[in-house]
Design a protein around this nucleic acid. Sequence first.
RNA 1: GCGAUUGUGGUGAAGUGGUUAACACACCGGCUUGUGGCGCCGGCAUUCGUGGGUUCGAUCCCCAUCAGUCGCCCCA
Length: 440
Amino acid sequence: MYQKIKGTYDLLPKDTKKWQALEKTIHNVSKIYNYEEIRTPIFENTELFHRSVGLETDIVSKETYDFVDRGNRKITLRPEGTASVVRSYIENKLYADRLPISKLYYMGPMFRYERPQKGRYRQFAQFGAEAFGSESPLLDAEIISYAVSVIKAFKIKDIEVQLNSIGDQESKTMYKAALVTYLEKDIKTLCSDCQNRFETNPLRILDCKIDKDTELLKNAPKPVDYLNKKSKNHFDKLCAYLDAMKIKYAINKNLVRGLDYYTHTVFEVNANLETLGAQNTICGGGRYNHLVSSLGGPNIPGVGFAFGLERLMLALESVNFKGAPDYLHLFLIVLGEEQKEDGVKLLNRCRLGGLFSDIDFLDKSLKAQFKLADNSNARFIAIYGENEKANHKINVKDKDTGKEITIERDQLYNHIITELMNPSQACQTCKEENCDNCGE
RNA sequence: GCGAUUGUGGUGAAGUGGUUAACACACCGGCUUGUGGCGCCGGCAUUCGUGGGUUCGAUCCCCAUCAGUCGCCCCA
């Protein structure tokens, strides 16, 4: 028997309902912030990710899905969204568009070769946003506000926004030098990973989980202490804007992110929910002022974030998020082969009129067809058999009221529509009038 | 890349080195070929992830492999 590839999953109908609801909310919030959707290919030239994400990052050095196509091109399944969006932004010259700022969002599958566990898959979905064209901290603030609004739209409460600034290129370079000097003579006391990072990406030593509590790292210089005037100003303004919007955040001086392209602002959103397990970072992002130019575009700054949608989904389990309930308006029971032509005609009429309708395809007994109707959560059950055919009638049962009546066959559609239009009765679940919560 | 743990029907699961692999739910049929949800009766795993080994005999013991789950690393 064939089985799915390790680290992938099938979304079955009961799950797709939730995903559709999740996606809908994301589209709505994006609209509120005036971001427009962009869809890029799921594979790109390998080189793109090497140049953007960084050769020395774990993502590129050991997690990409690479292959050579029949034309001998080196291809990589995208491990994240920013590189593709930036590529598309440059290639399609979106910077020359009517609006000076491009505000884009995307949603779709990403691929990383990792060991699967809770909230982590080899094919996983991200929702991300990128805003190009302004260095203003106002745009950083908007991006963070946007991310927080998405989370709030799902009524997830226990979140924490962690914020830091690693400064512009100049500050970054200054800081890196200071850090290297500081660590140089004692680097041997740190873990082997850190010793490697010392050579390849010293910033990452800061958030090493193994060594974070050592005196050496506790007393290490922090990026915020090396911000030049411009960078400091940017960070201060951002904080002020967030305060103005009453968005809570915690400054984490050790927060650096795993991708090379960030400058100035970096942030993460953690949710402290049991259902998330160890992977409690649901969103990460930051500013990247030189990514566009380093990929061959004009010197245009950008800022963005990305959500892990599986993790968002896990977080939603904690808040009892449900997709649309399953139901049919009509289940049509047809008895006997001779009645089937009239049956499909009736069914078709109802479907053309927009009623959610279904029918039995397995010549089941009356009893079994009733069961099908129950399992499909049908409100109306219509029965059409020999007697009805002879009299041009049809028998209709309303499960909400329990009433059963016989009507003219041709009135089936009108009858159901009329009944559906009647003012809704008390919610069956909570017995309250006009209940919106139960979704019944 | 490292570590832990699991793998028995459609599902949840019990079980033992030896003959028919419990039980429950679901499903199918009947009681009842025109009124379901309840009840009763009956059916439903030639086989215990896969491959090999030990043994007279393996679902059970051993090895390998694949897969799931969780953690580390990393990330979203």
